[in-house]
Design a protein around this nucleic acid. Structure first.
Lengths: 190, 190
DNA sequence: TGTATTTCTTGAAGTAGTTCAAGTTTTTAA
DNA sequence: TTAAAAACTTGAACTACTTCAAGAAATACA
């Protein structure tokens, strides 16, 4: 199962056999049950999670008590609160399994020691973070320039399967409109 | 002037004297005049810009022909379109100097060769990108949970000087509301 | 398999913002 | 030092959404 992350790493950098062996011995997968949290608001985030199989989400609870999803993560994605992770500050976010999910949980201390032993991993995590930031920039662009209906249709075109995979109210909040409005969009009542 | 970026790098990693020398010989600053672009929509972004002094912004032109600022960059920030940079695809963005700005422009080919000679720089760019992504996550949180007036007040509290530094209409679009509404918020007419 | 829980739907009323248009003020540069 | 350009302001009309409340449908699990 650790194979998944090793395969993903090898898309970006070369690993020596000894490095693969080291990685295999350092990593373990674990299962997060549907609806369980790996991070809650107010905690310090000391772990990065690589999703082997399943779906996680990062969300907040707004002033009206409604959950708003900021980010989904699926197979081959890393999910964490980088700000809390780096600054050792309490997190503003929840991270939760949307489905029962297999993850590789990488503790900060473990990761730091691996990064020293396999410096080329720095490049891997650099590229992962740069791509994630690029995607966040595009996300902000879509939020700024498209209407609710356009955002829904655009997302559905890009990720047709994913739309079926998560509850509509989670997707609605990710696209920044209400669950009720989502219903009306889908029914063609807007 | 390259000192600025070297100092910034040294906040995160150690550099050998030889590495500093190599960096100094590889980097040059240039001046971008106010309102000049370093990237326009449709171009491929092959350069990262480190801001030594001044202010740049990344923006788009929306369907109504209005500019919307997605990101500002000031002293000690890197600005680029990471998605275009990595995927070698045409950019959706403009990057422009808000004030006349001194930058260190780092071409992809140059950067790649420096990264090979100074592998520890990978760590520096990893941390820069991870922090930028963390900040983008917080930005999305604020956009999702705060009213226009709250976003303005929050930004003003966090960055009191910056509010004076850029035209209000640019800041309004960055905070995702209209220039007219900004005027009313500031006049207390909301 | 049935019941509790979660998710989705619908309409009515409300509102936080936008858009437009025109005028005013400030900044820029020849 | 003045004319042109850029930035800001204001009010009135509008609209893309939200909120609320209640019921219906789908899903989970004992």
């Amino acid at each position: 199962m650790q194979d998944a992350v090793i395969k993903h790493i090898q898309k970006f950098i070369n690993l020596e056999p000894s490095e693969i062996a080291l990685l295999e011995s350092s990593l373990t997968t674990s299962q997060i049950k549907k609806k369980d949290h790996v991070l809650e608001e107010g905690q310090i985030c000391n772990t990065m999670y690589f999703i082997v199989k399943g779906c996680m989400r990062q969300y907040i609870i707004n002033s009206r008590g409604t959950e708003q999803t900021l980010q989904f993560g699926v197979e081959n994605w890393w999910i964490t609160d980088y700000l809390s992770y780096h600054n050792h500050t309490t997190s503003h976010f929840y991270i939760q399994a949307v489905e029962t999910t297999e993850v590789i949980a990488l503790e900060k201390t473990v990761l730091e020691s691996i990064l020293i032993k396999i410096p080329s991993l720095e490049k891997y995590f650099r590229i992962v973070a740069q791509k994630a930031f690029g995607a966040a920039q595009m996300r902000i662009k879509f939020l700024f320039t498209m209407s609710a209906e356009e955002r829904y249709n655009h997302f559905k075109n890009q990720q047709p399967d994913f739309v079926q995979r998560v509850p509509q109210y989670m997707l609605a909040s990710y696209l920044d409109f209400s669950a009720e409005f989502m219903s009306k969009i889908r029914a063609g009542k807007v």
